[in-house]
């Protein structure tokens, strides 16, 4: 059965976020990321968290699905947080213990705890925000489309923008297929007694050969068949190609871009004027 991969997992609800121009969404995500890294004040984080929650609600993507997308990254989030608890030096010492005499003392400060929480929050809202706009509410093809149009001026200096976008589309299209295929091949080899989980590094690497070779062979076969199918449908690169969905910025897209910029400005203002706890 297909693994759940966040990439390419479009969840169509037809909400206003889904209908925004991908270029506007790209711009939003850009300002959103900048905002997150500019944010220092607790209130700024709270504000950005609100933006994310509002986005999820407006997009009507089930919150459960969005949270599930975070699951593979829980370890990373925990790791950075824990690291922060131990490494941050602040003023209010909560706990201290000498683990190895004269060599290693663990000091936990209140600031360390708050920093850890805020950093975890930063990663979580970053992931949730980008995945709502990029994965759940924008089809990969819209995204590549947005990039293709957004970068169109580069064609003039012979950057193969169309070819690149087409490659990306096909890659995205085939990720779920190849994941399914990998699982099938793994199961088939397990049925022949393959063991991927015991033994040393070399043994494990060797055990992967019966998976990688069939996967390569079938990918080449798929690529060849797909190329023929595309040829049959008169594909000949980007020249003279029209599109069904022509991207056209509407008023709502301009409004949205304006809001994105307001968000960034808001975060900067909160940073300067608010009196909440500030990230070290």
């Amino acid at each position: 059965m297909a693994l759940d991969v966040t990439i390419g997992q479009y969840y169509g609800t037809g909400s206003v976020i889904h209908r925004l121009d991908p270029r506007a969404k790209l711009l939003f995500v850009l300002t959103f990321i900048v905002s997150i890294f500019v944010a220092k004040d607790v209130y700024a984080f709270a504000f950005l968290a609100l933006v994310v929650i509002a986005s999820v609600l407006i997009s009507r993507v089930p919150i459960r699905l969005v949270l599930k997308g975070l699951k593979p990254l829980v370890i990373i989030i925990l790791f950075t947080s824990v690291l922060n608890i131990f490494l941050t030096r602040g003023e209010e010492l909560l706990f201290t213990k000498e683990i190895i005499k004269d060599f290693w003392t663990v000091n936990i400060y209140k600031e360390g705890l708050i920093n850890a929480a805020l950093l975890a929050l930063r990663i979580i809202i970053l992931l949730m925000g980008t995945s709502v706009y990029f994965s759940y509410a924008t089809t990969p093809i819209e995204l590549t489309d947005g990039l293709e149009r957004g970068l169109a001026p580069l064609k003039k200096i012979k950057v193969p923008v169309h070819e690149f976008a087409m490659m990306m589309t096909i890659a995205l299209r085939f990720i779920p297929t190849l994941i399914d295929e990998t699982i099938k091949i793994m199961n088939a080899q397990k049925a022949r007694g393959a063991d991927f989980s015991t033994g040393g590094l070399i043994k494990r690497a060797k055990a992967l050969i019966p998976i990688i070779i069939p996967l390569f062979v079938s990918s080449f076969r798929r690529a060849e068949e797909l190329a023929t199918a595309m040829e049959c449908r008169c594909y000949h690169g980007g020249n003279g190609r029209t599109r069904m969905n022509v991207l056209k910025m509407k008023i709502r897209d301009y409004v949205f871009i304006f809001l994105s910029l307001t968000m960034l400005a808001g975060v900067i203002l909160i940073n300067i004027y608010a009196n909440g706890y500030k990230l070290l």
Binding site: E181, K184, I185, N187, A188, Q189, K190, A191, R192, G193, I209, P210, I211, I213, P214, V217, S218
Partner: peptide, 27 residues
């Protein structure tokens, strides 16, 4: 899995070895 042998759908896509002999010998 040695007791219950399983031939999956389109099993030809699981072949990987250099020779047919090697492939049959894998199990």
């Amino acid at each position: 899995r040695y007791k219950v042998g399983m031939v999956m759908q389109y099993p030809e896509y699981q072949l990987f070895a250099d020779t047919v002999w090697e492939d049959i010998a894998y199990g």
